[in-house]
Design a protein around this nucleic acid. Sequence first.
DNA 1: ATAATATAGGACTCCTTTGGTCGGAGATTT
DNA 2: AAATCTCCGACCAAAGGAGTCCTATATTAT
Lengths: 163, 163
Amino acid sequence: MLRLSKKADYALMAMKHLALQADRGSASAREIAQYYEIPVELLAKVLQRLVRRGLLASHQGTRGGYHLSRPASAITIADVIQAIDGPLTMTACSTDDHRCDQFSSCSVRDPLWRIKDRIVAALATCTVADLTVDPPEATPVTAGALGKRGQSPFSSVSSEGKG
Amino acid sequence: MLRLSKKADYALMAMKHLALQADRGSASAREIAQYYEIPVELLAKVLQRLVRRGLLASHQGTRGGYHLSRPASAITIADVIQAIDGPLTMTACSTDDHRCDQFSSCSVRDPLWRIKDRIVAALATCTVADLTVDPPEATPVTAGALGKRGQSPFSSVSSEGKG
DNA sequence: ATAATATAGGACTCCTTTGGTCGGAGATTT
DNA sequence: AAATCTCCGACCAAAGGAGTCCTATATTAT
């Protein structure tokens, strides 16, 4: 359904989290996972892949953790998504190996390819830093109802249950 | 993986096919399926959904078939994709019911929502009619190698085996 | 040195989705 | 009435994704 995986979701959440506390050093996988109620093992796997792709840097051992390897403004959403989900392809034909039964008769592959490039471009214009700022002008209709969420995770929360 | 389903692929192929022969009347599901080597029953299901969404009109009975209910230039790629795959949502949280465990703690939902709108806009600028025209200027590097494909299905093919 | 904690990473299981199939009913033309 | 085609629900199998488990390794605190 043209939907990105939950791992990519977790990756974006973690990247935003790390961007917000970039000056406070690194954060551990457990810390982030507990805060967002994400399975620790799963988030760890996601973070490890981000390290492999060079978006994060890790520090092992006690008091270790992850931190951004680049300024948040230099990491695009496309970087994060493609690091987790691989190069985004609109069609099955678009992958390197063409295991699509309609490969030879497909008549819409090239046009879709162009559209894919536009989508990637759209994702590449938004950086992790953009995730940390508020929406420029919220819709004045229900601005109060469903406004910001989890905007400053480091204000009043340290360890309130949920263990 | 941010990939659209094969049904959506089939839908686009069929829409292009019907757009190309719009003046020749309607085409049956079997006819299109055989041409692109798509399982007939599956394509029929796809076409039926396009009828429901008002993108196609059907004519039952002998010599029945499908034809575009609107000019091809008035049907966007977004229309076709959303008719098949439903409203495209980037995240699990974006659906109407929030069955995502991180719904309350998710911090990237609103930014992703904005990006989704941009993707939909990109898909909405391309119409079915655009699928029928050649790429404006092919890349001059390998233009001859992998050029057009299945451009005029009605030239030399009528019923060559494959039955 | 040892214990504790953190990352690293593979293997594995469940579950949802999707691609595809089957069968029957209704409509229309011949 | 027969043939053909759309319509539509139910059904099945394969694939991918989400999540768990286990172990190895590195670093720090005691």
